[in-house]
Every structure is written in C-alpha cells, then in structure tokens.
Amino acid sequence: MNIFRLTGDLSHLAAIIILLLKIWKTRSCAGISGKSQILFALVFTTRYLDLFSSFISLYNTVMKVIYIMCAYATVYLIYGKFKATYDGNHDTFRVEFLLIPVVLLAVLINHAFAPMEILWTFSIYLESVAILPQLFMISKTGEAETITTHYLFFLGLYRTLYLFNWIWRFYFEGFFDLIAVVAGLVQTILYCDFFYLYITKVLKGKKLSLPA
C-alpha cells in the first residue's frame, strides 16, 4: 500500500458516498446517469468475484463489500425508489456501443484466457469507459448540479491517483501491469475536459454549464 493508492481508494469511496447521499438527501436522481451506475455495479461485480475465494486483507475485503453495496444501493435508488425523478430522456447513451467492444477486447487482450482473468480484464476495460453515459448526459442537459460535479471530481481523481500508484509500484516494487495502466490512462483522459471545467468554474463558485 502507498499514499497514492490509499488516497485514491478514499477518493473513490468519497465519490460513491457523495452520490449516494445526494440522491438520498435530495430524494432525487436528476442529472444522474442510471446507465453509468449500472455499468459501475457491473464493474464491481465482475472484479470482486474473488471476494469469497481469496482473502487479501481486511481493508481489501471491507472496501470491496462497501463498493458493491453502495453501487447496488445507488442503482436501486435510481431505478426503484426515486425512479420518478430519473431523467431517462437525457440518459440515452447506447451502452451496447461500450459493452460489445469491451467484451471483445477482454477476450482478445488479457493476461490469461481463464474465466476469472477475463472477467477481471472486462471490469478494467469497462471501468475506463463507464463514465461516458454520465458525461454524455451532462453534455445533453448542458449543465450539472454542483454536488454532481464534486462526485465526478473525486471519481476522476481516484484513477488519476492510481496512475501515480502504478508509477510508485513500478519504481519501488518492480511491478507493472500494462492492461491496468492503459485502461487507467484512457479513464483519466476522459475526465480532462471535465477537470478543466471543474477547476475553472465550479471551484470559482460558478455553476457548471457547458456551452449549449
């Protein structure tokens, strides 16, 4: 464990909690892409199947359980409890355009052609593009609630910190995983436009509104 991975995980946890609290407190999922949340739930499900088969540490197990529970709770709130506030008209990204290439890539480019390995690879590739429906929805509505931008900021920050974690692990532990690094780079690059808007607008107290 290193400081980048720890702060990365805490940033990820913060994002997940912020989103859950936003929906719960405001009793509304306006501006939130349910499709992205379903993809994240799928990412955690396919990545944490080893939850019961291999014990790495209490931290690892506890965080995985929290991530999975929060992901499904968020999906339930969006499509169940507060579905009346779900903005389906703007959450129209065709996720099959993500799932099909990700499945093909996971089958073609992986470290081992074994079920657990392919599922892990699928989850890594899927996570790198899972935010696209959310970013697409914001571009369609032309704006985002400030709390939603904080959610996105911490979510984008987490994988950015993981990139530093991988540099650290390569340098100090001689450890390197090209699949995770490339997918992490793609994931972080997708946030660059948002990071720019967040830093130049939201941090200056303005509302995030895209030039329509």
Binding site: D50, N60, W120, E173, A180
Partner: peptide
C-alpha cells in the same frame, strides 16, 4: 507473479 500482486488493488 506480477499478476497476483495487482489483485491486491481495488
């Protein structure tokens, strides 16, 4: 072996 080390990440 590098693979299993990654698996300690979330």
């Amino acid at each position: 072996q590098g693979r299993t080390k990654l698996k300690d990440e979330l």
